[in-house]
Nucleic acid binder design. Sequence first.
DNA 1: ATCCGCTGCTAATACGGATTACCACCGCGG
DNA 2: CCGCGGTGGTAATCCGTATTAGCAGCGGAT
Lengths: 322, 322
Amino acid sequence: MAGVSQTTVSLVLNGRAEGEVRISPETRERVLQVIRETGYVADPAARRLAERRNRIYGVFTYEAVFPAESADFYHPFLVGIEECAEEAGCDLLLFTSAKVERGERRRIFSAESRIRLADGCVLLGRTIDREDLSRLLSEGIPFVSVGRRDDAGGPVPFVGADYPPAVHALVERAAALGHRRMAYVGAGAGAESYADRLRGFTEAVAATGVEGLHLATADRLFGSGASVVFAEELADGAAIAEAARSRGLDVPRDLSIVALGAPTRPVSTDIDFARFRIPRREMGRRAVELLTQVLERGGTPQELLACELVEGSTLAPVREGR
Amino acid sequence: MAGVSQTTVSLVLNGRAEGEVRISPETRERVLQVIRETGYVADPAARRLAERRNRIYGVFTYEAVFPAESADFYHPFLVGIEECAEEAGCDLLLFTSAKVERGERRRIFSAESRIRLADGCVLLGRTIDREDLSRLLSEGIPFVSVGRRDDAGGPVPFVGADYPPAVHALVERAAALGHRRMAYVGAGAGAESYADRLRGFTEAVAATGVEGLHLATADRLFGSGASVVFAEELADGAAIAEAARSRGLDVPRDLSIVALGAPTRPVSTDIDFARFRIPRREMGRRAVELLTQVLERGGTPQELLACELVEGSTLAPVREGR
DNA sequence: ATCCGCTGCTAATACGGATTACCACCGCGG
DNA sequence: CCGCGGTGGTAATCCGTATTAGCAGCGGAT
């Protein structure tokens, strides 16, 4: 239509017409005019094939992205991811195709995986398959994990929440309120985030010189003599509060409770726990920024974002006589 | 690695090895073995280029998908869309790249639009640009709109909520409770969904033989003598309830209120309005199903899903003497 | 010995755009 | 008239897969 070659159109379209290769302003204008009239847009698939770049970022979650169960937890991450993708002019590819079989988790690599259609990928999930991770690394697929991850055959790029200092601060606050015997309730393992919380607790009690107990479950909590309990998850905190109430204990007069996580399961509690805020939205944003950075300059960025403390009303001075 | 040509791999990969083209079972097994070992996956971009098919469905929303403001409204649609995409083995491409300029809406077609990377597209939004719609039609891009749409240079494929019968049923119920003067408050235009509600109302009052008023705003409602008001949006209903209270009117003793929409804006009200339920999740699911159908067999499906009535507590018998 | 039909596989090409090497043209100085 | 440098553009190739036409080899029938 403009009487020029495909090459010329490509050059004009990509603004390369000013550098090495020269196209006269008249020709350029003519091509642009036709493009405007027809609304021509280069085929993204062909572009990807030729250019190895798409401006499409993949988003992989081990659970369904939208559904309600964990929606409250994942949603803020996605808000941040979308915001930042929008600013970067990128589209998001949600890998929904990996069927979640009953009891099975999604897998990143399936026979039909379209992960390589995206320039790179943001990973979301409490835990991430080590096999998947190491394969991502070995195949050289650019990605950033939301949440700290242990090495998996190499360092993993991530943006995580910095749990240890946050837990540390809460332990110190409890100590300042007179607590001398503290319990951590939760696995303290399984996911990196759990391990980090327990580590923060363990280091903090050591540094503060108070006594720290680690209980896998709340069963033996009430015989332990602990005056404050650090619950690994908000749901755990709610359960402990309920158990305390049923024993006739008042929170926080008889027992202080600190919650160390965000609601990953839908918890119907309006208790205003002493806790910290996981900067989920910021983590989402930052993950996309880091992915962009990886795509442009490579590297293996690892970042931890600070968690803001929330005073709450479940951490009080230790009761005399305990 | 298997000592065969690229063609052979392609044939094996696509299970074409049994039809016209023949590959010996031994060779096939050898290729499959290598595929298993290496985890080879065909490049989706190249596939799309060659095959014109991707198993990627685009999702276009005029507002940001995730953010909180309209999250409550859009989320159920997305749940349905994701569910169905997962079952169909499709990935979802969110067109987040179209920057939402201050005060501007997203546009489907931009210079960088990656819409053609997807096999087809699901459109979501209260209103959809007519230009965008007619361009989709004229370019022959397969799509399905969530929400009924008027023709835009041709019939538009959609799955919508069937408002008129739902509104009709509510009008009838009001009439059965003795109401003889009913008001509809809202624009009744702008979006198809609003027009449909007003149309349902207008037809229903005519059929029922009661008096129907259409008020653009609630300003003159209280002098109108209407004993029941149909609010176009849930938020409108909440505002009217508030206004009634401030006038010393009791809902529903002095004034019945029927809400005709779902919360599109975050409304903090716990009023249990007489209303109907928009089957949003089902609409999302169905949209994906219809898109699949369009891709396979073409056509322009148009479907309306029934809205279930919700009794609520804001519709009562008309008060004597009004 | 020739031809046929079948089996099993591959060479060649298309898909649409990015990139690169190179060519045709023009004006100018020698 | 020749050579030279700068302009403006294009042919050719590549990206990785799907598809199609066709080729080599072989056994059996004529």
